[in-house]
Design a protein around this nucleic acid. Structure first.
Length: 312
DNA sequence: TCATCTTACACCTTTGAAAGGT
DNA sequence: AACCTTTCAAAGGTGTAAGATG
């Protein structure tokens, strides 16, 4: 889907995200934060090649419910915790031309998720456990290099959201993470990880942990986690699954917060979201005990049904 | 009592420096 | 000296499980 201004954003590893959507769970850790897996890696098209843009990512609470995992289902058993301010993370490349952004995958692999509201670490995003979250990309066009440009567009990818947890709830998600994340390979059935720990404290030598393969052991060239080079690669969406992002024109029509939300805030600083009002109170109702199909297709896919929020 | 969170841990990959060979 | 290969160690990314917390 292409926005009214012609900008199109797609998620490169959409197929992997789709695999996990039952729903996806992301681990939060307090001190150092936990990286997201699968990573969020986007491609963008339709920018003015010579204009300057910045790209931001933030997480958006999807509703005002707190969930728990019982009887193999997510149940919204309580009202959500008080909303914390939004933290928008600016892409490390900073302001770049449209050509730059369109030329390569846009990865936010440096982002870490934490549940520590007092964290001040760059690239850390504080989320609340047992709540539903959705990643949102903001593309900001810089007029004459001015960061206070009014041209912002937000993009949300259909079916890409997750439950924030401190420990995995759904065993199926845990299995998928172990199978697909190379750093968890020690937990695969072929791995050597011991559930009982008789050898704790004994550090092995590097040759034990990293046996030399028969060919060269020179460090591999730097690539992103999915093997892409930093330069653009063509990406094709999986068939029968539209992961292209929703255009903001649609959001403007349906989301009365959009103008408020984008009005006059400073990028890179914590934002305060608008208050709950009649509009989102009306649409924030969620069926309890959603089945998996419903969970995979939140009832408001184009627009978040809840923007949650503190006093404005 | 129980659900959730925190933390230390083993096991893994990645990275890059040092050492050795050509 | 310059370059390449091999070895090694540290850093960092995982899920696990025991204990702590409320």
């Amino acid at each position: 889907m292409i926005s009214s201004s012609g900008i199109e954003v797609t998620l490169n590893n959409a197929g992997l995200w789709k695999k996990f959507n039952s729903p996806m769970e992301m681990i939060l850790t307090r001190k150092i934060g936990r990286k997201m897996f699968p990573n969020l890696e986007y491609s963008v098209d339709g920018l003015n090649p010579t204009a300057m843009y910045e790209i931001y990512l933030h997480m958006e609470r999807m509703d005002d419910h707190k969930y728990r995992y019982v009887s193999k289902e997510w149940d919204d058993y309580a009202r959500g915790d008080p909303i914390t301010p939004i933290q928008k993370i600016k892409h490390k490349s900073g302001g770049q031309t449209g050509m730059f952004w369109m030329d390569g995958p846009i990865s936010f692999e440096q982002i870490r998720l934490t549940n520590n509201p007092e964290t001040e670490k760059k690239d850390h995003i504080c989320l609340q456990s047992m709540h539903k979250w959705r990643p949102v990309v903001t593309i900001r066009k810089l007029e004459n290099g001015d960061e206070n440009s009014d041209f912002d567009e937000e993009f949300r990818i259909e079916n890409v959201w997750f439950m924030a947890v401190t420990t995995y709830q759904n065993p199926a998600i845990k299995v998928l993470k172990v199978e697909n994340n190379k750093f968890a390979s020690g937990f695969r059935s072929t791995g050597n990880h011991k559930t009982v720990l008789p050898t704790r404290g004994i550090k092995r030598t590097a040759s034990e942990t990293f046996p030399t393969p028969p060919s060269s052991t020179s460090p591999p060239s730097k690539t992103s986690s999915n093997g892409h080079s930093p330069i653009a690669h063509p990406f094709h969406n999986p068939a029968n699954f539209d992961f292209s992002m929703m255009g903001t024109a649609h959001q403007y029509l349906m989301n009365p917060y959009q103008n408020i939300w984008n009005y006059g805030y400073n990028m890179g600083k914590q934002m305060v979201q608008p208050v709950m009002n009649q509009w989102n109170m009306q649409i924030s109702g969620q069926p309890r005990n959603m089945n998996h199909e419903q969970q995979g297709n939140p009832n408001s896919t184009n627009v978040p049904e809840f923007y949650g929020l503190n006093n404005f």
